[in-house]
Computed example of a mutant assay.
Amino acid sequence: MSTVQESIEVEVPLSTAYNQWTQFEDFPRFMEGVEQVTQVDERHNHWRTKVAGVTREFDTEIVDQLPDHKIAWRTLGGEVRQMGVVTFEPLDEARTQVRLAIDFEPDGVAEKAADAMGLVDRRVKGDLKRFKSFVEERGVAEGGWRGRITPGS
Rank of each mutant, 00 (worst) to 15 (best):
E42M: 08
D107N: 07
N19D: 02
F58Y: 05
E79Q: 15
R74F: 12
F134N: 08
A101Y: 09
W21K: 13
E105F: 12
P151Q: 06
M117H: 10
V51F: 13
D92P: 06
V124S: 05
E142T: 09
T55F: 11
A116S: 08
V124R: 04
R138A: 13
D26G: 10
R99N: 03
I102D: 00
A113K: 11
V63K: 01
Q20N: 08
N19R: 14
T16E: 10
Q5V: 07
V140D: 14
V124D: 01
R99T: 04
T49S: 12
T87D: 01
D26C: 12
A72M: 04
V98Q: 05
V124I: 04
P13T: 06
K112F: 15
L14A: 00
R146I: 01
P13S: 05
R29V: 10
S7D: 12
A72I: 04
H44C: 03
V12F: 02
K50Q: 09
T87R: 08
S153T: 07
V80W: 08
K112E: 00
N45I: 13
D107F: 08
P90R: 06
Y18T: 06
I71T: 05
L91E: 13
A101F: 04
V54G: 03
F27A: 12
L66I: 05
T22W: 01
E57P: 03
P67R: 01
E79C: 04
R95P: 09
G108N: 06
V120P: 07
E6F: 11
